[in-house]
């Protein structure tokens, strides 16, 4: 294989590359947060009016630890009753699986093309 000589990259172009990467990185985390799609929020489905440790489902031993931590039943209400919702759709699950497989397929395929060039130049053909 003929030896490949890469072009020299100017400073401005290097700077643009870095800016692109930073924007993509920050966007990947913050866009779901800004759009309110971050998920994993817990919610209280059935609030308890005038809560006591008993109505919150706490045994005396559990209630004693909460009191040692400085909580009253009112203050601990949301902390104790909030739950995750693990229901999901099969479509969403299949979509996620497809996205992951597509991703690995893409990088393995492109990597193999690039790798053959590397080996050909390094070891000669």
């Amino acid at each position: 294989m003929a030896h490949y000589t890469p072009p020299k990259q100017g400073r401005a172009s290097q700077l643009i590359d870095v800016i692109v990467l930073v924007i993509l990185t920050v966007g990947a985390l913050f866009v779901p947060l800004w759009l309110g799609l971050a998920g994993a929020a817990k919610s209280v489905e059935t609030p308890v009016a005038n809560p006591t440790w008993e109505t919150l489902g706490q045994t005396p031993a559990q209630a004693a630890q909460y009191e040692a931590l400085g909580y009253t039943p009112e203050a601990a209400h949301d902390l104790i009753l909030a739950r995750f919702d693990y229901s999901f759709s099969i479509t969403a699950l299949l979509t996620m699986i497809a996205v992951i497989l597509l991703y690995y397929f893409l990088i393995l395929r492109f990597s193999e093309v690039e790798y053959r060039e590397v080996i050909a130049e390094k070891f000669g053909e």
């Binding site: 990947a28 971050a38 999901f88 969403a92 996205v99 990088i107 492109f110």
Partner: peptide, 21 residues
């Protein structure tokens, strides 16, 4: 996926875009 599926897809989307780049 149970709760953080959006981040998972957003993150893999990010890696797909930067891979193409």
């Amino acid at each position: 996926f149970l709760g953080y599926g959006t981040q998972l897809v957003a993150m893999i989307g990010f890696y797909i875009v930067v891979s193409l780049w």
